[in-house]
Design a binder for these strands. Structure first.
Length: 468
RNA sequence: GGCGCCAUAGCCAAGUGGUAAGGCAGAGGUCUGCAACACCUUCAUCACCAGUUCAAAUCUGGUUGGCGCCUCCA
């Protein structure tokens, strides 16, 4: 399996730290509002990465934090006249609802920054002892130049940063030894949440949170650290500096970053007013469609969001779900139990689709190609099954389709719904009408059912229905 | 100013040296009472210029046009 490592800027063969195990950390959202669809991209992408590792038989320890102490949370709390805690708890709950809708598996552990302060204080102390950090008036800074490898992830050198530093010397930052130094601990301001520390009552800097939580739940060295590409600098660069300086060993072997999601070819931003929350999308579309849409492009390419593209994704996903529905429908009515010779021969041909699917996923999680393999399987099942197919054959095809789509987090095995009796009766009545060639009545019933959200399909094998 | 990315059909999107996957939309057809689903057929020489090579969408140089990071941001 190959994955692109931001550290080396190359695709590398994946070799786990511990055989058979994957330890991965994904930087989670700051919870000050509903998550937006940009937040959703890394969630969906790295959930899919996780699912593929699990499909391959790895034991995955997947940790993703919630940043629940932050300026934006505090600001929101003041606006609403409630505590920061109330804001963060509320939006963590909302975020989990959205994640469920997108079929994102809960992490093995979702640590909260506010519950890990003790460990952060300890890590900062270690950094001070080792000479990598210093305190000034209650604030603790990381001594950036002291860490030789600084810049190895973002491929910047300190002098380039120097020349671009222009605005770094604003407001009170002049007590730093060097403009490149960053904050590990800052004293509280009036009304802010705070914790005790040897330096001041205050709160941790953002970067140290992830270093500590990663260490606590996954250990000093992990396999994969992931997040949006905007986190490469400075967030991940600083995490590396902190963790490697404190622990004395390589932090993460592989660094994965997803590209941004734009809206109508523009970056999402508050000033443009084009922020779209996942919740908003869910009012209009099944979030499965959003997931399918996100996976239709490679995770390292920028992706554009628009209404048209969602419509196209809806049609595309429907094609896959229709195939699964049809297989289930045939299975229900199948007469023959076991596969015959012909079916056995046909089923062997599906190996090629599985091989294509895996080849795509093994090449740095090329989900667009993997989806193409799923479409090949869909066409195969549509073309090579009918009312005479055996239960076993249909079942195996169905099982395979579910297995592959499940890696992508797409649900095609919808729970069997039971129709109300009066609806069953209407469908029967319509069949009678059709037999009697009373098509006006038949169409009237079809329209009536459509109004109730039931779509009918008259297949050669009988009447199939689904919810709109 | 520094670092970096991208440009494939109406739309989306794979493909990194051997002559263009897949999906959506469109057109024609089969099936069907009709519709829907499905199936068949059809729809590109890869921004532009120059070069390397027997061979380039794929490598090199340049041009044009987009974009990102360097500051909170997924």
């Amino acid at each position: 399996m190959k994955l692109y490592n931001t550290l080396s800027k190359k695709k590398e063969e994946f070799v786990p730290v511990d055989e058979g195990k994957v330890k991965m950390y994904v930087c989670g959202p700051t919870v000050y509002n509903f998550i937006h669809i940009g937040n959703a991209r890394p969630m969906i992408v790295f959930d899919t990465v996780r699912r593929y590792f699990e499909y391959k038989g790895y034991d995955v320890n997947y940790v993703s934090n919630f940043t629940d102490v932050d300026d934006k949370i505090i600001k929101r709390a003041i606006e609403e006249g409630v505590t920061s805690d109330e804001i963060s708890k509320r939006y963590i709950a909302e975020c989990k609802k959205d994640m469920e809708g997108m079929n994102i598996k809960p992490a093995t552990k979702h640590p909260l920054a506010t519950e890990e302060i003790g460990g952060m204080v300890e890590m900062i102390s270690t950094l001070i002892e080792k000479g990598y950090a210093y305190e000034k008036n209650g604030t603790v800074y990381f001594r950036t130049r002291r860490f030789e490898d600084y810049g190895k992830l973002s491929h910047k050198n300190l002098d380039d940063l120097r020349s671009g530093e222009r605005s770094l010397l604003v407001t009170g930052e002049d007590e730093k030894e060097d403009p490149l130094d960053f904050v590990l601990w800052k004293p509280k301001k009036e009304g802010e949440p705070s914790w005790e520390s040897p330096w001041s009552d205050g709160r941790p800097g953002w970067h140290i949170e992830c270093s500590e939580m990663s260490k606590k739940y996954l250990g000093e060295q992990i396999d994969i650290h992931a997040g949006g590409e905007d986190l490469i600098f400075p967030h991940h660069e600083n995490e590396i500096a902190q963790s490697e300086a404190a622990n004395g060993k390589e932090f993460s072997k592989y660094w994965m970053h997803n590209a941004f999601l734009n809206i109508d070819n523009k970056k999402m931003s508050k000033s443009l007013g084009n922020f779209r929350t996942v919740r908003e999308i869910s009012e209009q579309y099944d979030l499965q469609i959003l997931r399918f849409f996100m996976l239709s492009a490679h995770y390292r390419s920028p992706l554009n969001f628009s209404a048209d593209l969602m419509e196209a994704s809806k049609s595309g996903l429907e094609r896959i779900v229709n195939a699964a529905d049809h297989l289930k429908f045939l299975m229900k009515n199948a007469e023959a139990e076991n596969m015959n010779e012909e079916e056995r021969r046909l089923f062997v041909r599906t190996d090629a689709f599985v091989a294509d699917f895996e080849r795509a996923m093994e090449d740095d999680f090329n989900t667009a190609d993997a989806i193409a393999a799923v479409f090949d399987l869909v066409k195969f099942t549509n073309s090579n099954t009918d009312a005479d197919s055996s239960k076993e054959y249909l079942g195996k095809l169905f099982e395979l389709l579910v297995k592959l789509t499940d890696v992508l987090g797409l649900i095609v095995d919808k729970e069997e719904e039971i129709l109300a009796e009066d609806i069953e009766k209407l469908i029967e009545e319509r069949q009678e009408a059709r037999k009697a060639k009373d098509f006006a009545r038949a169409d009237a019933i079809r329209d009536e059912l459509l109004a109730k959200g039931i779509i009918l399909k008259d297949t050669r094998e009988g009447v199939q229905w689904k919810k709109a």
